[in-house]
Amino acid sequence: MSKFKQQFLSGPYLIWIIGFILLPMAMIIYYAFTGSDGTPTLQYIAAIADETNRKALGLSLWLGVICTVICLVLAYPLAMILSNMHIKNQSFVVFIFMLPMWMNFMLRILAWKLLLSKNGVINSVLTGMGLSRINIINTPAAVVLGMVYDFFPFMLLPIYNALTRIREDWIEAAADLGAGKITIFFKIILPLSLSGIISGIVMVFVPSLTSFAISQVLGGGHVLLIGNVIEQDFMQGMQWNAGSGLSFVLMIFVIASMALVNSFDKEGEGTVIC
């Protein structure tokens, strides 16, 4: 088969791209920039400045940043410990830490709802020990906890992969040349794992910025993220133009934050997929 003919094998995919990737994108942009009667308007893009929407977007960004930072702080030491383990079953230990990722997303949230609710498991343990209860269900704190639990593996994996690629010779060479442990960490380990950190940040920040299910279940309707506003526009209000406008703005924020994060990665290897 010639190279020319071989290209035609991607024909079905080309149709798929046009029909189910590009066309839907065009639809959302069309709705975002037109009124319900079909006339062009910018009001639905500008609606992001309304108080509710602005607050929701601000809260989403804020919780997204907190969640990403917590994941990074928790995952980096764990990835270092895992990559430094010299036991026969290292791969099995790593597997243990990845396993919760394969559990259904909703079931993981269910577990936290169960733990955190007013008369839930954590509170009854606390009362049993004579301590005061914590009431964080239906607050942003519960939402962040749920996000951290859900997205933690997405931070752990890329960092762990980056760390295992650092060869021990390099660290030994640095030590032979007189570098202390701290110097080795900041001059060798951290820069060489940067691409992993950046992948991790993108893979945690984007879903936490745009999630709506976690805030709905663990926030009990009291925590309104931008995802919740969009979801309500579509599923309850039937305000497709308003929802598309906000989705478009959200898309811009996602692209901008990825561009910002990737600009720290000088070698350009830290994109989400590569």
């Binding site: 189910f20 639809m27 959302i28 709705y31 745009t210 969009i230 579509f234 598309s244 989705s247 990825m258």
Partner: peptide, 13 residues
């Protein structure tokens, strides 16, 4: 790269 919610909505539209 797109957020799931945006992909979902665009296809629904």
């Amino acid at each position: 790269l797109n957020a799931d919610i945006v992909t979902g909505i665009s296809m629904m539209l």
